[in-house]
Simulated scan of single mutants.
Amino acid sequence: MLQAIGSKVKGFWKEEEGLGTLEVILIIGVTLIIALIFKKQITALVTNLLSSVNTKSEEFFK
């Protein structure tokens, strides 16, 4: 009985079907967690970059 359970667990562990989906879900989850942790810094960076682009484009079109 214990050997049968052990072989099923080993078979499940070695099975790679659907593993790509799990990896994508984990990557998305980690990315969201990092984005939430650094939300203020990311917002400040994007705002700074957009204002810089706006300033440079105004200089270019003058």
Rank of each mutant, 00 (worst) to 15 (best):
K40D: 12
V46Q: 13
K40G: 11
I25S: 06
V30N: 00
N48T: 08
I34A: 10
T55E: 03
N48M: 06
S51D: 08
T43K: 14
I42F: 10
S52I: 04
A35N: 13
L32T: 10
L36T: 11
I27H: 05
V53R: 08
V30D: 01
G29C: 10
T55H: 13
I28L: 10
G29F: 09
T43A: 12
L45A: 12
L32W: 08
A44F: 13
I33M: 10
N54L: 07
Q41S: 13
V46N: 14
V53P: 00
I25Q: 14
A35T: 11
N48I: 01
I25G: 02
A44H: 11
V24P: 00
I34L: 12
L45Y: 08
G29Y: 04
L45M: 11
A44S: 09
S52T: 05
K40M: 06
I34P: 00
S52V: 02
V46G: 00
K39H: 11
V30P: 00
T43Q: 14
S52Q: 10
T55S: 11
L32H: 05
G29E: 00
T47H: 01
L50Y: 03
L49H: 12
K40I: 04
T31M: 04
I37P: 01
S51T: 09
I34R: 05
L36R: 15
K39I: 04
V24K: 15
